[in-house]
Simulated assay, not measured.
Amino acid sequence: MAGKRIAVVTGANKGIGFGIMKELCAKFNGLVCLTSRDESRGFAAIKNLSELGLQAQYHQLDIDNIGSIKKFADYMKTKYGGFDVLVNNAGILYKRDATEPFGEQAENTIRVNFTGTLNVCQGLFPLLRPGARVVNVSSASGHLLNINGSEPAASALREKFASPILTEDEIVSLVNQFVKDAEAGDWNAKGWPSSAYAVSKVAVSALTRVQQRAFDADPRKDIVVNSCHPGYVDTDMTAHKGPLTIEQGAVSPSYLALLPPDTDLRGVYIWHDKQVVDWVNGPTPSLY
């Protein structure tokens, strides 16, 4: 099946990921692969899509497991030779009433939301074909202004994240320092917010900019990566408090996944209404 157009969505068995699957199954000219950590839930989602008249393929993928990522990459290479769309949607969020120590929340959230996403990218980017589209699902929390701990330390952190010569290794170093500061209990004094989710998503947004610089120098032409805030959506992650439907939450990531050739949107951060947002200076638009 080499040459067949393929799209991949992580964490796609429910919520926004499932909404993205519905959009891509209806609009993408090719095969859409639904991935999830839990196989039974993944196959149930495939069945739900089928009942809606939408066809998709399933493959297990746990972004928190290097072995799972490698197995999926080997499968994609062997079966298809490459692919064309990657939507990095999988992630976790501790609720406001979570009782786990903040250091534990920080370690787990960074490991899954940032490191897991980075590992998926490192494992799958070599398989992207020319013209591929990558979408990193961020959040309103992923805007740089959410690095808002004590000043002037927070300003220094924002400057580092916003650097036009920032590297992947430097982002890794920054988030690792956040985890250490969270475990030590002095994260706010060091400039970090009291939200591990915000730090993880700021890191994903910053990573997007770094990745696009690399793709701009890649011999494979017209590979584009962007990040987005999908909106405050009615999902398990928001304890069903979000006012938007999963279909509305799928609008911006699906839009980025289906960008036409030679698009001007390269390494940008967009809102749920597809508006390009100034990630460095803000201000951010309305959450809804």
Results as ranks from 00 to 15, higher is better:
residue 100 E to A: 15
residue 100 E to Y: 02
residue 101 P to K: 05
residue 103 G to Y: 00
residue 106 A to V: 07
residue 108 N to V: 15
residue 108 N to C: 05
residue 109 T to E: 10
residue 109 T to K: 06
residue 114 F to W: 05
residue 115 T to S: 11
residue 117 T to D: 07
residue 121 C to V: 03
residue 122 Q to L: 15
residue 123 G to D: 06
residue 124 L to F: 12
residue 126 P to L: 09
residue 128 L to C: 09
residue 128 L to R: 04
residue 128 L to A: 11
residue 130 P to M: 10
residue 132 A to H: 12
residue 132 A to S: 15
residue 135 V to Y: 03
residue 135 V to G: 08
residue 137 V to I: 14
residue 138 S to E: 05
residue 138 S to M: 05
residue 140 A to R: 13
residue 140 A to Y: 10
residue 142 G to V: 09
residue 144 L to T: 12
residue 145 L to V: 12
residue 148 N to C: 13
residue 151 E to S: 15
residue 152 P to A: 09
residue 154 A to N: 08
residue 155 S to K: 09
residue 156 A to F: 00
residue 158 R to G: 11
residue 158 R to A: 12
residue 159 E to G: 15
residue 160 K to E: 15
residue 161 F to M: 11
residue 164 P to D: 14
residue 166 L to Y: 06
residue 166 L to F: 07
residue 167 T to S: 15
residue 169 D to K: 14
residue 172 V to E: 09
residue 172 V to T: 14
residue 173 S to I: 01
residue 173 S to A: 15
residue 173 S to Q: 11
residue 178 F to Y: 14
residue 179 V to E: 02
residue 179 V to D: 05
residue 180 K to L: 13
residue 182 A to G: 02
residue 183 E to G: 01
residue 183 E to I: 01
residue 186 D to E: 09
residue 186 D to S: 11
residue 187 W to P: 00
residue 190 K to E: 07
residue 191 G to P: 01
residue 194 S to C: 11
residue 197 Y to C: 11
residue 197 Y to R: 08
residue 201 K to H: 05
residue 203 A to L: 05
residue 204 V to I: 14
residue 205 S to N: 05
residue 206 A to S: 15
residue 209 R to I: 14
residue 210 V to C: 10
residue 215 F to L: 13
residue 218 D to V: 11
residue 218 D to N: 14
residue 219 P to N: 14
residue 220 R to N: 12
residue 226 N to Y: 06
residue 227 S to D: 08
residue 230 P to L: 10
residue 231 G to V: 09
residue 231 G to R: 07
residue 233 V to K: 04
residue 233 V to P: 05
residue 234 D to F: 12
residue 234 D to W: 09
residue 235 T to W: 04
residue 235 T to A: 12
residue 236 D to H: 07
residue 237 M to P: 07
